[in-house]
Design a binder for these strands. Structure first.
Lengths: 247, 247
DNA sequence: CACGGAAGTTGAACGTGTTCGACATCGCGG
DNA sequence: CCGCGATGTCGAACACGTTCAACTTCCGTG
């Protein structure tokens, strides 16, 4: 399908768009054989996504290439989109690994943040072609793949934790009030960078690197400035608004 | 289909995702009969989208309801997604109309911006259910529906012009350097508001209203502050970065 | 060893968006 | 009035994502 047509027209209720949340995420393999098949299908799928792009890769193609029936792929992954969630997870793990190397050697806030952001793009880089075409599914609010969805919570929390570590592990002096909220804001900024990267058509996505290199000093300076008398009220108001807006 | 599988596997070139840009946007009717049919199909489609949601509305359903063949719909609109672009256009026109009323009576920057932002959400409000599910197609960089795409240029320029009018028609004193760039930044902020709105699950999307009411004074204050000595360099750097990053 | 249920696997079948060659209707020049 | 090309219309056919009832394989228990 593509757009999740509610399968049984149950839900006598109304014309709501209803999607996802309760949706089965595919089976967690219980045996070694299952685990192996699952991994085979996943590897094949991600390889084909990178080789041919997301849209040009069909579930039939994945199944044939992996040597299984199409129904078998659906036994482990409840939809084509769910294969992407696995991609997210893998990406997140690699991002944190790369970031750890940076955080181990840098102590100042700016270089730490700069390194972590670049590490994220480094991780994503090989998949730029195909990432661009599926990021749209992540943009749908009702999709379990949305970075704000409950299903993405583990990945999101891990990512926010990474930015918390980036901040608290640094020598930066930060308004204590801001200190609690900043990691989430940095994560949001990272989302913005990724959004820019997805749209970035410059060779090697060089402009995204420019964005990071230019934005980090600005963020750094702004964080320092936030303790200034003239800016104090602004800072307070921003934080207040954010707290109000959080779901 | 849904995900634009390059129809003929031509393009011997490579595995690029290739999409859109050259894609036919459907026929511009040349006769009165054509114009009438086109409008009938469009009205039917948008009505069904609002009634049933985007995914639950099928091209066959639209055709049947409009009393035409499915192939006929494709004569005027080259894909289901292209029906959405029409929705954008209609929305933009209504937004500008509502905004004009506000701009006619307000002279200060903050209330003007506040009014224009609320007008945008007012316009979108009746379509929240269905807007949420298709905004994802707008998020795909290669999609003609992306707000950054060449195809969206007219709508985008009109929207930016609206924010320019919001600013220049006001009594606000703005750093002349900022004055040129600010409208585009305000448009970006509007996009951010819409993005929040799409994800906003609060009753009546009340939180989006809170966001607008809270963010506008902040923006207003920040714009004023930008002329301050301490912030001058930051302002310069931000503007420099933006100019570098623009495609 | 036999059996029974859980786990894994299959592929035909459904409804979808989209395409395309054939047909219908129109308006205009002869 | 007759053609004839452009414009509009049609619906069967295609490939896709997804479902599901039937089947097979596996393993622990009696």
């Amino acid at each position: 399908m593509t757009d999740r047509p509610v399968p049984p027209p149950a839900d006598a209720g109304g014309a709501t768009e209803q999607t996802g949340v309760g949706g089965t995420a595919g089976a967690e393999p219980a045996t070694a054989r299952g685990e192996q098949t699952r991994q085979l299908i996943l590897d094949t799928a991600l390889r084909l996504f990178r080789e041919r792009g997301y849209a040009q890769t069909t579930m039939r193609g994945i199944a044939k290439e992996a040597g299984v029936a199409v129904g078998n792929a659906y036994y482990y992954f409840s939809s084509k989109e769910h294969l992407i969630q696995e991609f997210y997870a893998e990406t997140g793990v690699e991002h944190r690994a790369r970031a750890a190397a940076v955080l181990a050697r840098e102590t100042e806030f700016a270089p730490r943040l700069r390194g972590v952001l670049h590490a994220g793009i480094d991780t994503l880089a090989p998949s730029h072609e195909f990432a661009a075409t599926f990021f749209k599914t992540a943009a749908e609010p009702t999709s379990p793949l949305s970075p704000f969805s409950p299903e993405s919570s583990p990945t999101r929390q891990a990512s926010i934790a990474l930015f918390r570590e980036t901040l608290t592990g640094s020598t930066a002096k930060v308004d204590p009030e801001l200190r609690d909220e900043l990691p989430e804001l940095l994560w949001l900024a990272y989302l913005g960078v990724v959004l820019y990267w997805v749209h970035d058509r410059s060779p090697g996505q060089a402009k995204t690197r420019t964005l990071i290199n230019g934005a980090v000093p600005l963020i750094d300076r702004l964080v320092g400035l936030s303790r200034l008398r003239v800016l104090r009220p602004v800072t307070r108001d921003v934080l207040g608004l954010i707290r109000t807006l959080r779901p």
